[in-house]
């Protein structure tokens, strides 16, 4: 097992390095660069200014040299400097990554809490009224555009009822004057609407996955045998049915966890939530390489690590899988 994990970690590292170069190279192919943005906002910039800035930023060097300099900076422990926001990347991204994590984790947790029992119940009673109702809401959740749902939630809860804030991450100045409890309450208040908006879509998707995997598992011969043996219904469902339904679910859930730090650009933008999603989008659009590359590395690492975790969990779910 240890050898297997070590081997996979080394593979992961190689993939990150290769993909980071590919990504860096692709970004250099995009039209425009940080200097272009300066030209657009200030027509007074001269050709001398342009040449000077390109030299200063290293934009006149070939992609592999720029990539080399970027790797050198990263290895020295410096994540670089955001040319858009004019601050070090760690200072810019740190708090936003955590905000995104809180939002994504809460919505994922809520979605799983609701979707798992709903999906299982629906799978056990196919064709029932509850099943139809669950399916109706699942498809509804999947189909509703998240920005529209976000707007509706704001109009109902912030404008009409006035019980929740329309946007933001926390009440400005709350940390100066309040206790830890009130700060926590305040943060939660700002998380409710974006979490709801994100969860509705996720719940729909998860319910469909859980329902189909569980139905598939419950159709197996060994379930019929277990029932014939007179095993209790709970044991049949959880020990034999659910455990066998877990393999596809582990894949889906692990992949969902890999997006914990990637951000939800639409939700974050609609709710003016200070997360990493919009920051990454803006950094790619503005060719802010350092910010974009760090977020890319985080995303790739999370996907690879969560896949590794899923592979390990398969072994626990199904003893027939070994790592030799």
């Amino acid at each position: 097992m240890t050898t297997y994990i070590l081997r996979r970690l080394i593979q992961t590292l190689v993939v990150i390095v290769l993909l980071s170069y590919v990504c860096f190279y692709l970004m250099t192919l995009m039209p425009g660069d940080p200097v272009e943005l300066m030209i657009q906002s200030n027509p007074k910039i001269t050709s001398e200014d342009i040449a000077r800035l390109r030299d200063l930023y290293g934009l006149d060097q070939p992609a592999y040299q720029r990539y080399g300099s970027w790797v050198k900076t990263i290895l020295s422990g410096d994540l670089g400097y955001s040319r858009t926001y004019r601050v070090p990347v760690q200072e810019l991204m740190g708090p936003r990554l955590w905000n995104t994590f809180y939002l994504s984790f809460l919505s994922l947790g809520l979605s799983l809490l609701i979707a798992l029992p709903m999906g299982i119940y629906s799978a056990l009673k196919p064709g029932s009224k509850v099943d139809y109702l669950v399916n109706f809401f699942s498809f509804g959740g999947i189909s509703i555009p998240s920005f529209w749902l976000g707007l509706m939630l704001i109009i109902i809860f912030a404008v009409q009822l006035g019980v929740l804030p329309a946007g933001g991450t926390e009440t400005i100045g709350v940390s100066d004057s309040a206790t830890n409890w009130s700060i926590l309450f305040d943060r939660m208040k700002y998380l409710i609407l974006p979490t709801l908006s994100l969860s509705v879509q996720q719940i729909g998707g998860f319910v469909r996955y859980v329902r189909s995997s569980m139905m598939e598992a419950m159709r197996n011969d060994f379930i019929r045998t277990a029932k014939a043996k007179g095993l209790e219904r709970g044991v049949v469902i959880w020990k034999h049915g659910f455990r066998n339904a877990l393999i596809p679910l582990i894949t889906i859930i692990a992949l969902s966890f890999s997006g914990l730090f990637s951000g939800a650009i639409l939700t974050e933008t609609v709710f003016a939530y200070q997360g990493v999603g919009k920051l990454v989008y803006d950094s790619i659009m503005a060719n802010d390489y350092n910010v974009a590359m760090i977020s890319f590395i985080i995303s790739v690492s999370m996907v690879l690590l969560m896949n590794l975790l899923a592979d390990i969990l398969y072994g626990f779910a199904d003893p027939r899988i070994t790592y030799n």
Binding site: I155, A158, P165
Partner: peptide, 20 residues
Amino acid sequence: IIFRIIPNTGTLEANLRSGT
């Protein structure tokens, strides 16, 4: 004075009407 970013112009009005 607080300058607050509401990146989506579509929600600026809702933020204004809700007092954010």
